[in-house]
Simulated assay, not measured.
Amino acid sequence: MYAIVEIAGQQFKVSKDLKVYVHRLASEEGSKVSFDKVLLLDDNGNVTLGAPAIEGASVEAKVLQHLKGDKVIIFKKKRRKGYKKRNGHRQYLTQILIEGISITGGKKAAPKKEAAPVVETTEEIVPKKAKAPKAEKTEGVEAPKKAKKKDNQE
């Protein structure tokens, strides 16, 4: 069983007994937290989708520790200009342990309803465009012919 849940603005695929690093949470170490924004739930092939979240589904987790991530270096340079800037930061993270995924009062994905029957009318709703009449041929009058070029072969 796994679920896709939104934690601190990011989506994670979680299952039971999984350790996940997320953006810093306001909870203290050792406390339990619950995430209600479950977007997808898979229970051995039975997939339930939320629109946008599944009502009644939640993921329980325990906060293990607060820590800082690896240092990320940002280096900017413009060649031949003597411009160099070095900057970096370490992201504040929280390590959580997923203790369980629960569905209380959740409902399975309902089968699609059939569309309402289409009512056909005998009247045309959009009138068709009338075609322009073709030019009529007149009898006895011939169109002027183009002059042919003659090749001088002497």
Score class of each variant (00 low, 15 high):
residue 92 Y to R: 04
residue 61 A to W: 00
residue 98 I to Q: 00
residue 81 K to S: 03
residue 49 L to P: 04
residue 27 S to E: 12
residue 26 A to S: 12
residue 129 K to P: 07
residue 61 A to F: 00
residue 43 D to E: 13
residue 68 K to I: 03
residue 24 R to D: 13
residue 35 F to S: 02
residue 151 D to G: 12
residue 108 K to H: 13
residue 71 K to H: 12
residue 152 N to I: 03
residue 102 S to W: 00
residue 1 M to H: 09
residue 11 Q to W: 02
residue 85 K to F: 00
residue 152 N to H: 04
residue 84 K to A: 07
residue 94 T to V: 07
residue 45 G to A: 08
residue 120 E to S: 12
residue 77 K to P: 00
residue 34 S to N: 07
residue 2 Y to W: 11
residue 72 V to I: 15
residue 154 E to M: 11
residue 40 L to N: 01
residue 28 E to L: 03
residue 17 D to S: 10
residue 108 K to S: 15
residue 26 A to W: 12
residue 66 H to G: 04
residue 132 A to S: 14
residue 92 Y to L: 04
residue 112 K to E: 09
residue 57 A to E: 02
residue 20 V to F: 05
residue 44 N to G: 09
residue 5 V to M: 00
residue 139 E to F: 13
residue 142 E to Y: 06
residue 10 Q to Y: 09
residue 138 T to W: 11
residue 144 P to H: 10
residue 99 E to Y: 01
residue 8 A to P: 00
residue 97 L to P: 00
residue 152 N to R: 05
residue 144 P to C: 08
residue 99 E to H: 00
residue 138 T to F: 08
residue 6 E to C: 04
residue 4 I to V: 10
residue 131 K to S: 14
residue 97 L to S: 01
residue 6 E to F: 04
residue 145 K to V: 06
residue 146 K to E: 01
residue 151 D to H: 08
residue 46 N to E: 13
residue 147 A to Q: 14
residue 147 A to I: 07
residue 143 A to P: 08
residue 21 Y to W: 15
residue 102 S to G: 01
residue 108 K to M: 13
residue 44 N to L: 04
residue 75 F to G: 07
residue 39 L to S: 03
residue 36 D to A: 03
residue 13 K to L: 12
residue 95 Q to G: 06
residue 38 V to Y: 02
residue 137 K to Q: 15
residue 62 K to L: 03
residue 19 K to R: 15
residue 145 K to G: 06
residue 2 Y to C: 06
residue 31 S to M: 11
residue 97 L to F: 06
residue 59 V to N: 01
residue 114 E to C: 04
residue 74 I to R: 03
residue 80 R to N: 12
residue 46 N to P: 06
residue 40 L to E: 04
residue 97 L to V: 01
residue 118 V to K: 15
residue 86 R to T: 11
residue 25 L to G: 07
residue 112 K to H: 06
residue 138 T to P: 12
residue 101 I to C: 00
residue 136 E to W: 11
residue 130 A to I: 10
residue 46 N to A: 07
residue 77 K to N: 05
residue 71 K to Y: 13
residue 30 G to F: 05
residue 80 R to E: 11
